[in-house]
């Protein structure tokens, strides 16, 4: 699974850096690094909903560092991964 975090100008200003850091930290903690690849994407055309994030080819969601944890837990539950 790919998680694409937008690193375009707008999203960067609204905190891509912190979102990516949080993802990196939790992917490691939950041992999900071999299951989920974190990628940077250029402008996903949803600048107003920064920080834009896209899971595989699903629709673009708006992320904040606080939302990272619940999101990963939800994905893990869905896939029945033990974290």
């Amino acid at each position: 699974m790919d998680i694409n975090v937008c690193i375009g100008s707008a999203c960067h200003l609204k905190g891509s850096y912190d979102v990516i850091k949080e993802f990196q930290k939790l992917l490691k903690e939950y041992n999900l690094e071999d299951k989920i690849t974190l990628k940077g994407a250029f402008c996903l055309n949803h600048c107003v909903e920064a920080v834009s994030t896209k899971i595989d080819n699903e629709k673009v969601i708006s992320m904040t560092p606080e939302k990272v944890k619940p999101l990963l837990e939800e994905i893990a539950k869905e896939h029945k991964w033990n974290i």
């Binding site: 975090v5 690193i7 100008s9 960067h12 891509s16 990516i20 850091k21 990628k39 940077g40 250029f42």
Partner: peptide, 27 residues
């Protein structure tokens, strides 16, 4: 894109085959 070396000020740069450097714009 390469997000292993994040810089808090300058957004990450990227590569596209055939180009030497791809960066974010304004910042």
């Amino acid at each position: 894109t390469d997000i292993t070396n994040l810089d808090p000020v300058v957004p990450p740069y990227a590569k596209i085959e055939g180009l030497d450097l791809v960066t974010e714009g304004v910042l």
